[in-house]
Design a protein around this nucleic acid. Structure first.
Lengths: 134, 134
DNA sequence: GCGCCTATATATAAGAG
DNA sequence: TCTCTTATATATAGGCG
C-alpha cells in the first residue's frame, strides 16, 4: 500500500517507523470503528507505541475476557495494581531499549555522539569476561 | 472498498452483516498484526460479534497500562490483572539478568561454558558500533 | 456459511514543499 | 518535523458455486 511494497518486519529506521506507526494506527482505529458500527460488534483495541504512548478504542459494551487459574489475594485495590503495572511496563521498556543498544539490534536509533561511549562500555564488558575466563 | 460504497452505519440485512463482519474482522486482525510487527508496538485487540463469538489478537509482550489519574473501567477483573503482573514481572526479571550479563555486572553467576559465547556476542556488538561510526 | 473472483474504494509508502 | 500529494498496494462489496 503505497509507492512501494514493504516486508512485514520491524522497520529499522526510527523515523520511518514512527511515521508508519502514526499512519497505520490511525488506519487501524478507523477500521476498528467501522467494524463496530457496521456489524454492531463490541470491540476493544489498545495500542502502545515503543515510546510508551498509549491509545485505545473501545465500544460501549466492551468487556474483557476472563482468564482463569490465578490465585488472587482477598483484599487489594485495583488502583494500586494499575500503578504497579504502569511502573513495570515502563521498566520493561527501558530494559528492552538498553538490550537493543547493547546487542546492536537497533543501531540506527543511537545518536553518533553516544557511539563512543557505547563502544567503551562494550569493551569493558569484554575485558571483564576475559578476566573471568582465566 | 468493493464494488460499491457503503455508509458507515449498522448493516440491516443480517446475512450481509455477518459476511461483512467475517471479512472485516480478518482484515482488522491482519492490520493489527502488521502494525505490531512493523512498528514494534504492543497491541491488544478483542472482538465480540453480535452472536457472542469472541476473537482476539495480542502481541507477546502486550501489557495494558493505566496512567495514573485515568479512570479504571468497572468491568476490569483482578484475576486478569494478576496474570498480567505475573507475566510482566517475569519479563522484567529476564531482561534484568540479560543486562547484567552484558554489562558484566554479575559475572560470577555466569557459567564458564557460557563465557566464550558472551565474549563473541559482545565483540559482535563492538563491531556493529564501529561500523556505524564510519 | 465458506471460498474464490473482480471491480472499486481505501490505505499508505515515498516524495515534495 | 509536518502537511499535502500521488502512485501503488490492499481491503473489500457484491456475485457465484
Amino acid at each position: 500500500m503505497g509507492r512501494g511494497k514493504i516486508p512485514i518486519k520491524r522497520i529499522e529506521n526510527q523515523t520511518t517507523r514512527q511515521v508508519t506507526f502514526s499512519k497505520r494506527r490511525a488506519g487501524l482505529l478507523k477500521k476498528t470503528h467501522e467494524l463496530s458500527v457496521l456489524c454492531d460488534a463490541q470491540i476493544g483495541l489498545i495500542i502502545f507505541s515503543t515510546t510508551g504512548k498509549m491509545c485505545q478504542y473501545c465500544t460501549e459494551g466492551y468487556r474483557r475476557q476472563k482468564v482463569s487459574g490465578t490465585c488472587i489475594p482477598e483484599h487489594d485495590n485495583r488502583e494500586h495494581l494499575y500503578n504497579e503495572l504502569a511502573v513495570l511496563r515502563k521498566e520493561t521498556r527501558r530494559l528492552q531499549l538498553s538490550m537493543r543498544r547493547y546487542t546492536g539490534e537497533d543501531m540506527s536509533s543511537i545518536p553518533f555522539e553516544e557511539l563512543d561511549q557505547l563502544e567503551h562500555e562494550l569493551e569493558r564488558s569484554v575485558i571483564k569476561v576475559r578476566e573471568r575466563k582465566v
